[in-house]
Design a protein around this nucleic acid. Structure first.
Lengths: 341, 341
DNA sequence: CTGAAAGCGCTTACAG
DNA sequence: CTGAAAGCGCTTACAG
């Protein structure tokens, strides 16, 4: 680089302090000197060293966005990128930068905490996804380091977080099936460790119960593997020989896989089996038939998370916040009877 | 925070210089003192301030990844995230951090350059996508700031870049159609400004010519809008009443849109019209029929770009590099006759 | 309104 | 092998 605040000070015949004040647009600086300094700055194409600045006033304006287990699948799915995009949009408006960290092992977690948080690079952290990150979260809590997690975490009361109301979303989706006349509705991709899915199963059951329908465990397919293969799930489900007319999958891609198997069985969607997914993937609108899905608004999950973090950073009053982002049921032909082809 | 190198020095009865040497694992430090210092560091959970460190030895170990026009679509598509993931994986191995910047206006471009590059936050930049960024690139060149662009830029000889060979990829795809017996092959999503697409059109024409087939401009649909809507494109194409049996779309999603319209016309894929796309989206494997596509390996575009940048950063010998990432033709049922349903 | 000086938390020749 | 001191490029009370 080369040119520093000192050089500008000399050329403009002022002190470094004055240049610094011009840079930060300090109110009590005469218009004249300000103009002169600005001109010199411009002339030399001077731009203050942000690192030095950060060191001096202890603020980097950088937020760490931590993406857990950035496995191939998690990122091919538009969900994470959309959250990231949401976060980035708010960051930009507020003149923050985003440091992206993909974290897949416990070792990497501590590295992130040590280097980014304790090391003073980032002022706050957004944790994209709450699953399993107990240690990460508790460590952050111990440090009293500002952070927001996307996805309701286990220790939900001591942490700021943003999420959909997954119970409610699944409840409404299930209700939609019931209103379409279905009573034997399968649930694909249950999990005993993923809070999101646990909640959705609860919503599903709630809707069934409220409408006086039996909950048939044989219609519920569980798997450790969260981004499970819908095709394989459906195959397993069909083997159980349990009749069904409706199917709720935890993700649109899972639904597509299931539909593929359904078609291979010579059955059609929605006439034989109505199918819906979650996440409202771009393609759900173009698939044949178009897929009913739940839009979880990942973009807004991202924006809101970032907003909460900024609020926490800037207000002197520290609070534990939460935000529920509405999820929208998007009904398409895959669950509308008499429209299949 | 609080605890600094000075505190550790005191507790360990050494100078700050010694602590600093322990931190950076300086060779000539006695095992004894090193151990003692490490113990104290550990005891106080001390982690050096990276900002101060960066300022002192003028190296932040942060790379800026600039994503152009992070519009809704560009990010819902797995292409960018995959490149990002690739870059991140290499970054991590080499102990670099990634600062993500979404840039959609010229104003934001200069801001990135001023703040991140001139401001000394990042040591290098990866530009994801070469389209239109003449000023950005030329500014970076003027600064002699290290950067690599993904996607062959206009001034390709003065810039380090990574890309597929798009001429070759389209050539092979077209050849595949021809070998399947097609001679009237439409080309969806031509462009006169997007280098990627210009190259692909060239590859298409080359294959046609080499096989003695006429190039029918009526079978080529162009649109300014790069991520054009395949459904609309197909509609426009059909209106031209120009018979065709094959269709190449610039993106899988575009292909899906086209297929939708084809189906609505009562025609089937691949028996009436064989269809292929680019980018080998996750869903192309599950769609009905599964879609032939070109895998452009965005992950490797990202890794390779980052590797080139690191090489540039660490070697004393500055060079202008390029890397061609192979694109793989993935043949599926959408272009295989006699397999449609 | 402006400047001199101390300080942010490190690193790195230079001596020894 | 270790320390004292200067320096990285800014900011910010404190005076005036």
């Amino acid at each position: 680089m080369g040119i520093t605040i000192g050089d500008i000070a000399k050329k403009a015949n002022v002190s470094k302090a004055t240049v610094s004040r011009v840079i930060s647009d300090h109110p009590k600086i005469s218009a004249k000197t300000k103009e002169r300094v600005l001109k010199v700055m411009d002339e030399f194409d001077y731009h203050p060293n942000m690192i030095a600045r950060s060191l001096a006033h202890r603020s980097t304006k950088i937020i760490g966005v931590v993406i857990p287990g950035i496995s191939e699948k998690s990122f091919k799915h538009p969900f994470f990128p959309e959250m990231l995009r949401g976060a980035a949009s708010v960051a930009q408006k507020n003149h923050y930068n985003i440091l992206m960290s993909a974290v897949s092992t416990a070792e990497m977690e501590t590295q992130v905490i040590n280097e980014l948080a304790k090391g003073g690079i980032v002022e706050g952290i957004i944790l994209m996804g709450a699953t399993v990150h107990d240690k990460f979260i508790s460590e952050l809590l111990k440090l009293k380091f500002p952070f927001v997690v996307v996805g309701r975490p286990e220790n939900q009361d001591s942490v700021s977080w943003v999420d959909n109301d997954n119970v409610q979303a699944a409840y409404e989706l299930t209700k939609h099936f019931i209103e379409q006349g279905h009573s034997r509705i399968a649930f694909l991709g249950a999990s005993s460790i993923d809070i999101v899915v646990i909640d959705r199963l609860e919503g599903y059951k709630k809707a069934m119960r409220e409408h006086g329908l039996p909950i048939n465990e044989k219609l519920i397919i569980e798997d450790k593997n969260i981004d499970g293969d819908g095709y394989a799930f459906m195959k397993a489900l069909m083997k159980r020989q349990e009749p069904m007319t409706g199917l709720i999958a935890m993700d649109d891609f899972m639904a597509f896989g299931a539909i593929k198997y359904i078609n291979e069985c010579g059955l059609s969607v929605p006439d034989d089996i109505a199918v819906a997914g979650f996440n409202n993937v771009l393609l759900s609108n173009y698939s044949t038939p178009p897929l009913t899905s739940v839009e979880v608004n990942p973009f807004h999950l991202g924006t809101r998370a970032f907003e909460l973090l900024i609020a926490n950073l800037t207000s002197s009053y520290k609070s534990i916040d939460r935000a529920i982002i509405p999820a929208d049921l998007v009904v398409r032909q895959s669950t509308l009877r008499g429209t299949g082809k």
